[in-house]
Structure formats: C-alpha cells, structure tokens
Design a protein around this nucleic acid. Structure first.
Lengths: 191, 191
DNA sequence: GCAAGAATTGAATCATCATTCATTTCTTGA
DNA sequence: TCAAGAAATGAATGATGATTCAATTCTTGC
C-alpha cells in the first residue's frame, strides 16, 4: 500500500528523467511526465507540491548518479593527477554517451528554481575535485593553490568543452585527451 | 522621420539592456521594456517581430561591447601571456562591476532562442583567445595544443569562476589572480 | 489647411501550462 | 460483502505574459 505510493513516486521521477534524457527540459510538461509514468496529471501533485520540486528532485537524483560514477572512478586511483584524469574521463565519457541529459544538466534553460539544483550539481563535482586537489597540494604533488577556485575553474572548463560537442553531436577522443592535458597543466601536475 | 524610427528602435534596445542590467532577464517583460523606452507595448512589435528577436539583438549588442572591451585591452599587449592576462582581467573586472548583466549574459535562464546568442557570446570570446593562443604556439611561446579546445576551456573556466562570486556578490582580487595563474599554467605559459 | 497614409497606442486576445478539485475508483477492516 | 476513507482521475481553472488590432494621433505632400 505504502509500497504502491512509493512506487508511483519512483515511476514519476523515472518518467521525468526519461523525458529529460530524450527531449530535454523543454519536453517536460507535467502532463507529459504523468503520461509517461502512467498516472493522471493531478496525481503528480500527490507526490510533489510543485513542478519545480519534482524537478529539483529529478536533478538531484541525476546529479547523484553522475557524481557517484565520477567518485567511484576516481577512488580507484591513488595520485591527484590520476584521480583528476579519472574524473575528466568519466565525466566526459558519460556526457558523450547521454548527450541530451548532459546538456539538460549542464546548460539547458530551466526554471530558476531548478537552476539552483544545477548549481548544486556543478558544485558537487567541484567539491569532489577540490578534495583531490587539496590532497595533492598537501602531499607536495601539486603546487600551492586555492582548491576551491581551481576546482571550480576545472568544472567550468570541462562543462564548456562538453556543451559544444554535445550540441554538435561530435566529440573526438582528442577532445578528452586535450582536456586532460589542459587541466593537468592548469593544476600544475608535473609532466 | 526615418531618424525617429531608428531612434525609438535604439531606445527599445537600450531600455531592454537597462532592465537586463538591473533586474536580469526575469524582469524583461515586453511591457516593462516598452514602458522604460516610453513607447507602447505594441510599438515594440513595429521594430522586432518577436520578443526573442529583440533579445537576440540585445544580447548581440551587449556581447559586442564586452568582446570589444576585451579585445581593446588585449591589443595593448604583445605576448600571448600578457594578452591572455588582459582578457581575464578585463572580462572579470567588467563582470564584477556589472554583476547582474554578467550573470544574465553568462548563466541566467533565458528563452532557448536567446540562449543561442549566449553561445555566440561565449564563442566570440573563445575565438578571440584562440587567435592569441595560436599565435603563441606558432611563435614558440606556448607548447603545441588545439587552440579551439583550450580557448573554449578557458572561457568555461572564466565563466564558471565568475558566476559563483556574481551570485555571492563577493570577489576578491585573489580570485582574478588565481585565475590568471590557473589559465597561464593551463596554456603552458612558462613561469 | 487638409486629406492620405504611416506610426503609435494599449486594452483585449490567445496560448501555454501549471495547478486545482469535484467525481470516480480502489483498499481495507469488520 | 460492504461502508468509510484514501488515492487517483482529468477536465476545468487561473495566471502569466507575448502578441494583435481597431482606434487614434501624428506627418507630409499638395
């Protein structure tokens, strides 16, 4: 009973994610989400007070997924340089494999209320990176720097370099390699 | 006569820019723009077929201004490193002096049609930088790299590092110096 | 000074969707 | 099996704000 409730809540979030990944935020009317989740429009409001609340959660879910993947990849490495490389490869690889979703998470125009979640998403990546960078600095692997600032700049560089290719649908492996070089240099990884 | 026409077109664009700079895109209803330009709502449509067309032009105008300022600053320098530094300082300085406008140009949610202009804006900066970077590479000042990619990454890093402070309203000069170091390293400027 | 036509006005229209709610359909406990 | 209450339905409502257009006000050439 309570299970059915939870299940349809899940289904709504999944449906929203699905539409987001296929047609972007623009395709995400409440009616469309409800239809895909096989519930009535009004039922969405039994679970979420507001469309913005629904999508805040959707963005949170999607973000967590992305950040988890990146975190997992980085955890397998043991130097700051390798971790940063893993972050870039994972982030870019996933973005290129699911371009529409990546574009929605990174750059597509959304409600201001949802925009806030996007900042959280970017910030989560930055915070993760900041940790690795701080470790690298502390361990002498990287030169002194403000990890808050440099991690933010890295996330910006990554996102910007992705959005173009995402739109164009193209993306050579050169792009990823180029980014790794760029970011390693930026952080002062010794060559 | 034709002059009056041109003049009121100008006034509409200026009004839109003014509201954009004061209240962001969110404050830019056609009615508000018309009121500020001291014309009737309907008159806006004598000059622009659509709100999106109006704001495409507004964004284009604002972009040109920003890119011109940056170009002028860079032109006064003669090494790739100094030019890039000038770009960063000018870009950041202007953004911090007009935070609301910078946020609107860089990150605020806008109509998809206007979003396209934002990409043009970012691309214009990137193209400018790409030229300096290519020169630097050609002249041996910078190591080999793909100027398209690295300039894009630089713009992303700059923008991302600005948006946070813009929202927070804060921005130490440390931020700008940190960015210069980061980007110089990223491009391989010898220290 | 005046008529024809252009330009301007701003209130009414239209479109889009998020949100609501009276009605119907389930679930459950006795 | 049934009644009470919970959950679900989806058509109607409401808000927002871009766009239109009939009415009015200017210009201009005669």
């Amino acid at each position: 009973m309570r299970a059915r409730l939870t299940a349809s809540r899940e289904r709504i979030i999944d449906a929203a994610l699905g539409i987001l990944a296929e047609h972007g935020y623009a395709g995400c009317s409440v009616a469309a989400v409800a239809a895909r989740a096989e519930v009535a429009t009004g039922s969405v409001y039994r679970h979420f007070p507001t469309k913005a609340d629904l999508f805040a959660e959707v963005f949170r879910t999607a973000s967590r997924r992305e950040v988890d993947a990146v975190t997992r990849a980085a955890a397998a490495e043991d130097t700051a340089a390798a971790r940063v490389r893993a972050v870039i490869e994972t982030f870019a690889g996933r973005a290129l494999r699911a371009p529409r979703l990546a574009y929605a998470l990174l750059a597509e125009p959304v409600d201001p209320a949802v925009e806030a979640q996007r900042l959280v998403f970017r910030r989560a990546h930055a915070t993760l990176l900041a940790g690795y960078i701080a470790d690298g600095v502390a361990g002498g692997e990287l030169p002194p720097q403000n990890p808050e600032l440099t991690s933010t700049a890295v996330v910006g560089a990554l996102a910007e370099a992705m959005v173009g290719p995402l739109a164009a649908g193209v993306a050579g492996p050169d792009t990823v390699d180029g980014l790794i070089t760029f970011i390693h240099r930026a952080l002062g990884v010794p060559s």
